[in-house]
Design a protein around this nucleic acid. Structure first.
Lengths: 154, 154
DNA sequence: AACTGATGGTCAGCGATGCTGACGATCATC
DNA sequence: GATGATCGTCAGCATCGCTGACCATCAGTT
């Protein structure tokens, strides 16, 4: 059990068995790849995710977009603020329901999204490079299952 | 591409391909399992990790413990404060180097750690239950590789 | 039309997190 | 015994995600 192992070698042995630790640090490593890649577009990962959601649908209300992203609607306000300030999306009042803000990609937003998306995918591939294709596929699929696992009915 | 797919079904399709999203939400799901399990011991996951690090080594200085956990030494102060207030660890001045605080598990700390550790493992197993044994093993191993991947030499 | 309840966007504020910068105490070196 | 580094501590800051409140608006009722 290496109970009295010293040095930092013990870290990996001890904490490598902790899923929480692994998930957190895997995320940190991924961010190290993705952030610089996206910074060239003046974006962070969350902002790009918003652009992706908008690109995948007809124009959405802020609430719709927030729900698809799994963020709070109050968080979406600042997100759209930032993207609008960068000229990547436009807000306008919905005409069918004037409570809603319809958010839409600008022409520039579409272009930036496409480029940034490529950069994100490249960063992800670089991150996954230490794994074999098979392992990477299993990892992704397993995470998909776990991330969307329902809290048993309730 | 399901470009004009509507409804929340689109979420999983669109974001399920994003590793960052998957890692983040997998972590959230795991926390949903682990937190209530550890709350019975008055602990959160970080605190238990500190106990685990201490249990695995001879008594450590705060800095040593912090480095093994991958947290900042300023963060460790509050962590040890909390654990000491709960009577699970003891701080005392090192006699060889009086700048250091030696942190050590109390008898009660050892007992709580062992029990909480079991609860944590059970929560982790429950979390992984939707996966097959083989998948779970590949997942863990892949995360281990990715979490500890070195930023190419620098 | 007026009333009621729910909904969407916004903002202020809170607690948690993880850092930086500074400080005092202590050690190591010379 | 002076200098520079190290460890623990604290104050302060930025970020994050949430709650609660507010206003405008919609939908259903009367």
């Amino acid at each position: 059990m290496a109970a009295d192992d010293d040095g930092t070698g013990a870290v990996e042995e001890l904490l490598g068995a902790r899923l929480g630790y692994l998930l957190k640090h895997a995320q940190l490593r991924l961010a190290e790849h993705a952030e610089p890649a996206l910074a060239r577009f003046g974006l962070d990962a969350r902002e790009l995710a918003v652009l992706a959601v908008l690109a995948a649908s007809r124009p959405l209300s802020q609430l719709d977009a927030a729900q698809r992203l799994g963020v709070d609607r109050t968080t979406m306000v600042a997100l759209v603020d930032a993207l609008e300030a960068k000229g990547l999306v436009e807000r306008r009042r919905s005409e069918e329901d004037r409570r809603r803000n319809v958010v839409e990609l600008t022409t520039r937003g579409k272009r930036v999204r496409a480029d940034a998306e490529e950069a994100r995918q490249a960063a992800e591939r670089a991150f996954l490079a230490p794994l074999g294709d098979r392992e990477a596929a299993v990892l992704t699929q397993a995470l998909r299952v776990l991330a969307t696992a329902k809290r048993d009915v309730s």
